[in-house]
Structures are given as structure tokens and as C-alpha cells.
Design a protein around this nucleic acid. Structure first.
Lengths: 249, 249
DNA sequence: GCTATCTAATTGCATATGCAAATGGCAAGC
DNA sequence: GCTTGCCATTTGCATATGCAATTAGATAGC
């Protein structure tokens, strides 16, 4: 449980006070300055530090709690929440967890791994500059021994310290990145493609067999972090989302 | 601009007052009792009607506005918002609009249409009872003359008055339903499949060619409304979503 | 009729106040 | 040591009050 630095909360004078407080704390959370578990100063402390009334501070904190950024409990105080990975269609799923939730045994192989510059094709496909240093990976995930999904991943070395030394022997890159990097925005694209020859061989399916392709890119404060291409074989896989007319339920 | 019935707002005594007010108004909105454009009573009226303070009423309304259910403007008052269809991955897109946004000419053909009971296969696939009366449709949507998407739809007649008389000559069923029915929940599932022979012929692609399959079911207060199966040919189509670690951005 | 101005309705925001509810931790008693 | 009960801290909720900002509609002036 880390200490918070009270004076890290700075208002910018733009807009309503409650919203300035909200944004100030939100930025500290999403930037990683206050990692999950950090205790947020109590309302009275913020109130004095910022010269606002308790109700104004309260309003900001209640809103942040509603957004899931912080968790508040009487007497214990307020702490930064751990980002949940539970949005089904709008999330970054952990492949090991997915497989294990299906009651199957998870395993994976790192097929290849290299540090260097992206090839033009990869740079184009993942929206990177040719000058960026990247780690490039191919990983095959298996469920009960059967090929589950083929992962091609590019990691922007500058955004993820230590990635060049990591060999991903114990943790697959997706999960490793969730622990060792921050992201503030992601983009999914889902499409259907036919398997290429090399892909078909690895996934043990016929060439041209329909596959669900998930391409995802993530950024941290507008800097690219990683891009991944997940190829799920056949009609066995589906992405499900539930929602209402005014947004998610 | 319809009138609101002030006494339609009823508290249930469960939980905080601001939340009772919030839920009471939310229910009136999502149930359709207060359709879009309806003016919500001003804070003072609700305050007197409910015996709560203005700030408590205010808190409920501010929250509803934040959720997008209502729109508030000084002096003009508060009105019920129109449900937006802009969530990209989590929405019910209008196919004509989608096509026209691509700058292509939209057209469609109703390939078949029938009223009756669902076949066992359809009942199973769409989660309906065999005894439900349904309208069954096959529609081909075209963009610039080319096949764009093949739609198979089942509409639960009891949930949509007038569907048995409608021939969908002027408006495709998806758009017609958005105007003539209410829904409170929907479920998407996206997967990749190979085209069957009949589907391939209609879409002008080869048998087995990968297609993106979107299956969607919608309910209104737990009663099924419609189920649809949208088959998008080939890798031309993609579903895109943007989000952050704490939810949508 | 047209325009500029004023008025009043309505929401937006902040504060001060008070009490309720939950609970971590201490102290007393066994 | 263990349990019980109390106290202080922190958040949750509701109210009352006051002023600011916005703007629809009325009014006055031309």
C-alpha cells in the first residue's frame, strides 16, 4: 500500500472545481503515478490542500468511483482500483485465463522472437515508424494440446523497459505486457479472413479455412506500446457483447 | 414535445433517495413511457412532488444526464434524449447509413417473407419457443449494386405490433424495427464462418469463402423482440472499437 | 413589423452543516 | 491470550442556501 503525495493533486483552473479535481486524480491514476492499491488522500486532506469544500471533493471522488477508477470504503478510505479485464467485447483478454475458463489445459510456444527494426510490411500493418526499435514475436497458444490461436506481436521497445531482455519463457507476451506496461487506449478490429499456408499449418486447418482475425493496437498517452494480430481458427470462436440502447448494461 | 405526467415518478423506498429518483426516471425512459423529446419536469416540480431537496433531485438528474438518458439545458429544461447509435462495436448500426457513409449507393431486396411459427432449426438458433408467432425474412443489402450483406431475421410478432401487415417495401426491416419497436437489451456475437452454397450464390462469392457472421438478439424487458443473422462476405468488413483500461473512451 | 432589451425560469455550481453507517484499532475486562 | 465493547476516522447522504449562467419569451422602442 503505497503512500500518496498529497501535493501531486494539481488543479488547472479550467471548468468546474469538482471536475478539475476529478481530472487531476484521474490523470494521476491513468498515468501510473498512483498505481493500483495506492491510497488516495481522505476527503478532509484534499479539502484543505485544495481549498474546496468537502462536498465538492466528495463529488469528484464519487464520480471517479462510479467510473471504476477508485474504490471507496468507509473508515478504510479510498484506494486506486485495479483495472478490470472484464468487458467481454471491449477488453484485453488474457488468453491463458480464457482457455482455463473453458476447463482446458493451457500451454504455449514462442515460435520466434527477435529484436530489431520492423520490416516495411510490419511497420505498415502495425502503424509504426521504420526507425522504431521493436521486439517481434510469434506465439502459438494451445488448449488441451490443440492449436487455439496464433499470435503475432510487435512491441515498441521504447515504451516497455526490459522487453529486449525478456524471453517470455514463463509468461506469454500478452500477460507479461499487462504486468510490465501501461496503456491508456486500445483499438480493436475484428474481421474474417482465410488462413494462409503457413498459418494453416500451424493451426492444423486447411488453407483458406475461415478464421477470426483480431487486430489490436494499444497506446500509452499517444505513444504506441504494442500491436498484436490474433488469428483464431474456424467458427469455434466468437466474440460476445451485451449492451442496451444507451450504452453498456 | 409531449407532456410529462409528474405523478408517474414513483419512488420505491429502496436505497438512497437520489438513486430511487434516478431509477424511477430511468425506468420511465427505457420503458418508453417517456419517449425521446418528452420534457422531464423541472427540478422544483420533482422536489415538491417527491418531498426531496433540490440538490437531491439535481444529483439524480445530473447522473442520468451523464449516462446520456436525458439532456439538460438551462432555462429550456430537461428532455429525454434520443438513443444514440454511435458505439461502433456496441451498437445496432443502420445498414443503409453504413453504406451511404462509405459513399456508395444503397439498395436492398426482400428475398422472402413469411408469417407463422418458427421451424425447429430457427427456434433453436434464435432462442425462441416453437409456439411463438414470428415473421421470418431474408433480405439482401447491396452497395453500388454489389452484394453487401445477407440478412436473415426473425421478428417476434407479439412484441412488435403491426409487423404482420408490414411488407418492408420502403424501409428495410432493421431500420423499420428501430422506429416501430423498443428494445432494452441486446447481445452481439461475432464469428467467422465459411459461406454455404446458397449464401455464396447470393453474395457472389465462392463456397467456403470466409465471412464475418454477426448474430444479434434483442429483448425488451426480457421479452424477445428480434433476432438477426448478418453475413458479411470476405475480409472487406471489419468491426472496430476503441476503449481504455477503465472502459470506453 | 422588426429589433433591442428586460425578465424570469431553469439548470449549474459551490458552500456549510449535520447526522448516519461502517469499521480499524485500542482499551478494558476476563 | 482472547474477547468484548468503545472511540475515532472516513465515507455516505440529505438538506438549506446563495449566486452564476443561460436563454425563452415578453416587452418596449423604433
Amino acid at each position: 500500500m503505497a503512500e500518496t503525495q498529497l501535493d501531486a493533486v494539481k488543479l488547472d483552473g479550467a471548468g468546474p472545481i469538482y471536475d478539475q479535481i476529478r481530472r487531476a486524480i484521474r490523470d494521476l491514476v491513468v498515468s501510473g503515478a498512483w498505481p493500483p492499491g495506492t491510497s488516495v488522500p481522505p476527503e478532509h486532506a484534499l479539502m484543505e490542500q485544495l481549498g474546496a469544500s468537502r462536498m465538492t471533493v466528495h463529488r469528484a471522488l464519487v464520480q471517479l468511483a462510479g467510473e471504476g477508477l477508485i474504490i471507496r470504503r468507509r473508515r478504510s478510505g479510498t484506494i486506486v482500483a485495479s483495472p478490470p479485464a472484464s468487458h467481454a467485447m471491449l477488453d484485453i483478454p488474457s488468453i491463458p485465463e480464457e482457455v482455463e475458463q473453458l476447463g482446458q489445459a493451457y500451454a504455449y510456444d514462442v515460435l520466434s522472437r527477435s529484436n530489431g527494426r520492423p520490416t516495411p510490411e510490419i511497420a505498415e500493418r502495425f502503424g509504426l515508424k521504420r526507425s522504431d526499435k521493436v521486439t517481434h514475436l510469434m506465439v502459438l497458444h494451445r488448449a488441451d494440446g490443440k492449436s487455439h490461436v496464433l499470435e503475432e506481436r510487435v512491441i515498441h521497445a521504447a515504451a516497455v523497459p526490459g522487453v529486449a531482455q525478456e524471453d517470455f519463457a514463463r509468461t506469454p507476451p500478452g500477460d507479461w505486457l499487462l504486468q510490465h506496461s501501461l496503456w491508456s487506449q486500445a483499438e480493436h478490429a475484428i474481421s474474417a479472413v482465410g488462413a494462409q499456408a503457413d498459418e494453416a499449418e500451424l493451426l492444423h486447418i486447411a488453407v483458406g479455412e475461415p478464421c477470426l482475425l483480431v487486430e489490436r493496437r494499444t497506446w500509452n498517452q499517444d505513444r504506441p506500446v504494442t500491436a498484436v494480430r490474433l488469428l483464431y481458427p474456424g467458427p469455434r470462436h466468437r466474440f460476445v457483447g451485451r449492451f442496451g440502447p444507451y450504452g453498456q448494461v
